[in-house]
């Protein structure tokens, strides 16, 4: 009840940002970069433990863009030049150039290592097949359906390997799922391929879309938890979920990851109280709107701390401790 978690990414500390640039320039070796990625990961795990987060994330210190990270590791993908995502932010959009193949498990070794750092559960983090397709250029498959289902088989294999490695929570992010309401059935079909037979608690994060166009259909997405952003809209989108009743666990985004302003404890508590009027408290988790990687490390920490404090007080007020 009101478990705290994070969506996925944390900001990279300055030394890691510099190291990644140095690798590009050829002045740093890959083993040295990996050493620094491990250092940063340890720091974020320790931070989450210290503030009392219930379900941890590894922070994605070894990842850049959430689609490109997987594309770079799959056979059949190429990486394009830079395209803009918003404002002055750019990413390298992957290109499907031939039949996609997963040559080996992509995230399992890192997950196993991160889980060894803490006794608390750490989520296995994957990008979902619909979003991988939507955020790629496709020069190979004949249709979007063909590409999405090819990716679903790959993500399914990765999810099964994560579960075999001990992951109790597996998050399959589908932020693009709300972009084409007419394709929601395809996204649901693909997620069914991924989660079929998994015993782990499954989560899907969806954000910055028009939820009204996909609700309540989205309740058919075969995962246990839907992780949604609310702070970005000042919780106005809560009303969408009032009827029909929300039937899954909701991970409620309560801090805006695209604002440098740190929310006050009272603002977050007010948002949670409003959400308690819509969702069953036993089916609520609390987290930020999205990955915090676009904030500075200090802003991310401050947002996480105030979020945890707000949840603690709400629990006290509700005698939930």
């Amino acid at each position: 009840m009101l478990e705290t978690t994070s969506v996925g990414s944390f900001p990279k500390p300055d030394y890691l940002v510099k190291a990644r640039a140095d690798l590009q320039k050829g002045t740093l070796s890959r083993p040295e970069l990996v050493r620094l990625e491990e250092q940063a990961t340890r720091e974020w795990i320790r931070f989450q433990e210290d503030i009392g987060i219930d379900i941890l994330v590894h922070g994605e210190m070894e990842r850049g863009d959430m689609a490109a990270f997987f594309a770079e590791r799959l056979d059949g993908y190429g990486i394009s030049g830079l395209v803009r995502s918003y404002g002055n932010r750019y990413y390298r959009k992957p290109i499907i150039e031939s039949t996609l193949v997963r040559p080996r498990p992509l995230t399992v070794e890192w997950h196993r290592w991160v889980q060894s750092l803490t006794s608390r559960p750490v989520k296995g983090m994957l990008t979902g097949p619909y979003t991988m397709c939507d955020w790629s250029f496709d020069e190979h498959y004949g249709s979007r359906r063909e590409a999405v289902l090819a990716l679903a088989a790959i993500v399914r294999d990765e999810a099964r390997d994560l579960e075999a490695a001990g992951a109790r929570y597996i998050q399959i992010d589908e932020p693009a799922i709300s972009t084409r309401p007419d394709e929601i059935d395809l996204a649901i079909e693909a997620m069914a391929v991924v989660t079929d037979g998994l015993a782990a608690t499954t989560i899907s994060h969806i954000c910055y879309g028009d939820f009204a166009t996909i609700y309540p259909h989205i309740l058919s997405l075969p995962v246990d938890v839907l992780d949604l952003e609310f702070a970005n809209s000042q919780f106005a989108n809560l009303e969408i979920f009032r009827r029909p009743k929300f039937t899954k666990i909701v991970a409620l985004g309560v801090v805006d990851v695209h604002s440098h302003v740190i929310e006050t404890k009272d603002q977050i508590k007010q948002g949670i109280r409003r959400a308690l009027d819509v969702f069953d408290p036993e089916l609520m988790w609390i987290d930020p709107d999205c990955g915090l990687k676009t904030r500075t490390p200090q802003q991310a920490k401050d947002k996480m701390k105030v979020m945890v404090e707000a949840v603690r007080e709400i629990k006290q007020e509700m005698n939930l401790n």
């Binding site: 803009r84 995502s85 918003y86 959009k93 939507d134 955020w135 693009a176 709300s178 972009t179 084409r180 910055y208 879309g209 028009d210 970005n232 809209s233 000042q234 805006d256 695209h258």
Partner: peptide, 13 residues
């Protein structure tokens, strides 16, 4: 106001 996806693109405004 807040960020929202620009139609069916991985682009936001």
């Amino acid at each position: 106001g807040g960020l929202i996806r620009y139609f069916d693109n991985n682009v936001y405004y």
